[in-house]
């Protein structure tokens, strides 16, 4: 087997068109059709997403609301509710309040955010 054999073999390999030369065109057609399908499915997904986006709810709000009503934060919520009741009645009766509920609000918010923090970050990307 000499170098001439190698050259002739190489010539044979590259000169004649390969038998599956037609294949890529078909594949392209298939890809196009699949692309179209994907596009249509993309459209459908986008529509779904748009529907979802219209209803986007901040998970932080819902989680903290759950936490606020949980047993864990019951004392803080109890004090906050009592304070709100007291202060609103003062405002209704005297026109002004002798105290505010900021501190009670802080305790409740502290409890609720601490309770919701790990759940929230597991939901966010």
């Amino acid at each position: 087997m000499g170098i001439t054999d190698f050259i002739s073999a190489a010539w044979d390999t590259f000169s004649t068109p390969s038998p599956d030369a037609e294949e890529p065109a078909q594949a392209n057609k298939e890809e196009e059709s699949s692309d179209e399908k994907e596009e249509s499915s993309d459209d459908a997904e986008e529509e779904e997403e748009e529907e979802e986006e219209e209803e986007t709810v901040d998970p932080k709000e819902t989680l903290e609301e759950e936490c606020r009503n949980s047993k864990e934060c019951h004392p803080a919520k109890h004090h906050y509710d009592a304070c709100v009741e007291r202060v609103t009645s003062q405002i209704d009766n005297d026109g002004k309040a002798s105290e505010d509920c900021v501190e009670e609000f802080f305790h409740l918010a502290h409890c609720a955010t601490a309770c919701a923090a790990p759940k929230l970050f597991s939901q966010l990307k």
Partner: peptide, 25 residues
């Protein structure tokens, strides 16, 4: 993060918020 997401819908009862300011705990 807390500052950006922590604005309550309305300040707690009795809290005085100055003109032009917003309540953020």
């Amino acid at each position: 993060f807390s500052l950006l997401t922590g604005y309550p819908e309305e300040p707690p009862a009795g809290a005085v918020v100055q003109e032009g300011l917003n309540f953020n705990p």
